[in-house]
Design a binder for these strands. Structure first.
Lengths: 190, 190
DNA sequence: GTCTATAATCGGATAGAC
DNA sequence: GTCTATCCGATTATAGAC
């Protein structure tokens, strides 16, 4: 792995662990085992490096989500598989955590990939839900775009609750509660 | 309002806007219109001040939640009222945002009030849900503690999605989707 | 209680040598 | 491409005067 690549990877990790305001160029350089000169040769500065790291993380998140959502099972099973996927819960979401960073939301350059990622995720979830509505697996009484936002929110909120408790349990409860609700709602009479 | 009080209030606001790592003693002093000497006279340092500010915010959150959850309406209506309460969505949750702060989760002193707040909230929601299950408003097929976590997670995740989009819409969708699911699940046949 | 002075360290870079 | 030197402001205090 070359220097520029190591710098991006280190920045991804630090943004995940400490956020943008909590991450210094020096910390990035040390983790990447690169000198200051190298960093400022390959990137114009911290915002530039962060921009590229965030784009990389966004792509990784989309790929990982598509692995469950794009499967060939039934829609409800794919959503359930996505919710139940093995996750490092206490680390939180590398993209979602950036929404709490004042410097990220204030900068269009940094917020754009975050915005785009969740927009894509909600759209993709809504597609799967609509598919399930056409087969009768999902209740027709619930708007697909609303429900997609609910599913994405349970994950993001599950991370928040787990980190507050320093324990995976609230995350597991939140996702399990949602799956139970989805199953119960599927068989409902409008 | 005396100086110590203004310092706490300013710290609450800054923790909400910028988090712990993003908030400096100097910024707190300026917002409170207090000098350095005053701040270090009343508090031992930034962690002490943050601790007191977080406790204050936690109490405020609990009071606000209890206003809807402790009403005398039907359980489903109280949960719905809590979800639909007027909120400054784009500001996010003053307590939830702290879970993304590395220095907060690393310090028991600072994380404890956050943990306690969400523990209380989930417990309170579970009580209301159990009440609703006994009256048939909530499906018995769903575990009350799980569902309570789901409800809390939708709110916390709704904030995340809204801040990513710089728009209230995803929050409104997420909460609306949950309300629709709750209604649909209530009438389900196990 | 509040003020000003002082200080060690960090943050985020630029400049020029190699 | 990478290294070292240098810079200026911010961070998080402490000390002592008023």
């Amino acid at each position: 792995m070359d220097t520029a690549e190591r710098l991006i990877k280190s920045t991804q990790e630090l943004l995940w662990e400490r956020g943008y305001v909590g991450t210094s160029p020096k910390a990035i350089q040390q983790r990447a085992e690169a000198g200051q000169g190298s960093m400022y040769h390959h990137f114009t500065g911290k915002p530039d490096l962060a921009r590229q790291a965030i784009r990389r993380s966004a792509d990784e998140l989309k790929d990982a989500a598509e692995r469950q959502l794009g499967g060939d099972g039934r829609p409800l099973d794919r959503i359930t598989a996505y919710l139940r996927r093995e996750r490092a819960v206490l680390r939180g979401c590398q993209i979602g955590r950036l929404t709490q960073d004042p410097d990220v939301v204030a900068s269009p350059e940094l917020r754009d990939p975050v915005d785009e990622t969740f927009r894509w995720l909600r759209g993709r979830l809504a597609e799967v839900i609509r598919e399930g509505q056409s087969t009768g697996e999902f209740a027709l009484t619930v708007d697909a775009d609303d429900l997609a936002a609910t599913v994405a929110a349970v994950l993001q909120g599950g991370y928040v609750l787990a980190r507050a408790a320093d324990n995976d349990e609230p995350f597991e409860r939140a996702t399990r509660g949602l799956v139970q609700l989805l199953r119960a709602a599927a068989t409902s009479r409008p």
